[in-house]
């Protein structure tokens, strides 16, 4: 999954002529913790966060450009969400503006990333089923159970190596938190005659 799949759009941003007071009001009205500051050409020149908003003293107003964080770390639309998560953790960031050809096109927030981790069990199950079918062909089936990301795979495994492969495959599916593998006796072949 990439930045363009998870980012918030449209972006609420402010321009370089905005006052801190006005920008703080915009922040208060929206569920974002920071606003990108863009210049007349649409380029991101900084980010104005809740903590920047608190720097203003009562009775005084300043331009956002005087208090914003600049320069700002950004990602491209094709950046993988895992890379984004790593950069957010490494840089203690809560938002990353998404920039294409110098223009602001979206923002990825920690919330957007959390949504990719917490996925609907049925979606996870369908994706895992697809993956296992690709691996073994649809003739061999394991029974799957996904509850809040806890995944149980039950069936006949050819050997320990295959068990490990299936466990590893399952863990690559976004939304899978844990994997339990239960081996059952192979079903004897029967003929209906």
């Amino acid at each position: 999954m990439r930045a363009r799949d998870v980012m918030s759009r449209p972006v609420v941003s402010v321009d370089t002529r905005t006052g801190v007071r006005e920008a703080a009001a915009v922040l208060a009205e929206h569920p974002f913790s920071a606003l990108p500051v863009v210049d007349d050409g649409g380029g991101v020149v900084g980010i104005f966060s809740e903590s920047d908003a608190l720097r203003i003293e009562p009775g005084q107003d300043r331009l956002v450009t005087e208090v914003m964080t600049s320069p700002v770390e950004v990602v491209g639309p094709a950046t993988d969400v895992r890379v984004i998560a790593e950069r957010m953790l490494a840089g203690h960031l809560r938002n990353l503006p998404v920039v294409e050809e110098g223009l602001l096109i979206g923002v990825v927030t920690k919330h957007d990333l959390i949504r990719t981790v917490v996925r609907d069990d049925d979606v996870v199950k369908a994706e895992l089923r697809h993956l296992l079918d690709d691996y073994a062909g649809s003739r061999r089936r394991w029974s799957l159970e996904v509850t809040n990301g806890a995944t149980t795979i039950e069936g006949d495994f050819a050997d320990i190596a295959e068990r490990d492969v299936i466990g590893a495959l399952a863990r690559t599916v976004p939304g899978v938190c844990s994997v339990e593998l239960i081996a059952t006796e192979p079903t004897p072949l029967t003929w209906d005659d």
Partner: peptide, 20 residues
């Protein structure tokens, strides 16, 4: 390199680098 943060440049990259 994978984890490197990438920054937006304002009008003047020299100024951006100086701030960093």
């Amino acid at each position: 390199l994978d984890r490197a943060g990438r920054y937006a440049v304002s009008a003047c990259p020299g100024e951006t680098l100086a701030r960093l």
